[in-house]
């Protein structure tokens, strides 16, 4: 039976009606409409569905939405503020830390969780932590470089560009976004 549930996602309160067995992943994507969090393996191995709940990195494909009531949930959509990218997002752009992009929200969220608790990780600590996030495109080298760029403060604040200052782009033709 569906129940009323309040979730705090990226600083906003969402009231949704969900079954008690609703996974956080599906609540975020299908009930709230934040599709940046991706489903990859559905068993908590690949990290594509990574989100931060109450300061901890979790696989939203293994987490019940009801268990997240009263906790702050951070998804990829919550990182850019006022059109300014998070330094990790900027670094992934500049250093080519993604290709197809499907694992990228999870990679960036996982890296954020690491840097939030350990702003100056060693190379080994980065490799160990990020091994929970699979990528089939990049071979990880440029993901590693992107994170190191943030650790070493190589991403300048003035480079955190707003959308308008992007270079070329792909023009999207009439594809609907998630309804809810």
């Amino acid at each position: 039976m569906k129940r009323h549930q309040a979730l705090n996602v990226n600083g906003e309160e969402y009231d949704i009606e969900i079954e008690p067995n609703r996974l956080l992943l599906h609540a975020l994507r299908d009930d709230i409409g934040l599709t940046g969090t991706k489903e990859g393996c559905s068993i908590g191995v690949c990290g594509a569905c990574s989100v931060i709940v109450g300061g901890r990195l979790v696989s939203s494909c293994l987490t019940l939405a009801v268990a997240c009531q009263g906790k702050e949930i951070t998804t990829i959509e919550g990182l850019a503020k006022d059109g300014k990218l998070h330094p990790l997002q900027q670094a992934f752009l500049e250093y080519g830390g993604f290709q197809c992009g499907i694992c990228t929200p999870g990679q960036i969220i996982a890296a954020k969780a690491l840097l939030d608790s350990n702003p100056h990780p060693t190379e080994e600590e980065i490799k160990e932590w990020m091994s929970g996030n699979l990528c089939r495109c990049t071979g990880y080298y440029k993901i590693f470089e992107s994170i190191m760029a943030v650790v070493q403060n190589k991403v300048r604040a003035e480079d955190l560009t707003a959308r308008e200052r992007r270079e070329a782009r792909i023009q999207s033709l009439g594809v609907y976004k998630s309804s809810s």
Binding site: R29, L34, T35, G36, T37, K38, E39, T75, I76, E77, L79, A80, L85, Q89, Q90, F92, L93, E94, G96, F98, G101, I102, T104, P105, I108, R163, R166, E167, A168, R169, I170, S172, V175, Y176, K177, S178, S179, S180
Partner: peptide, 24 residues
Amino acid sequence: RVTRVEGYDKVTGEARYVADLHLP
């Protein structure tokens, strides 16, 4: 070294993959 044309969409979670589409 040009950054990807769809890069902004991909690092912000805005890129629309087929699983993200929802039609009425």
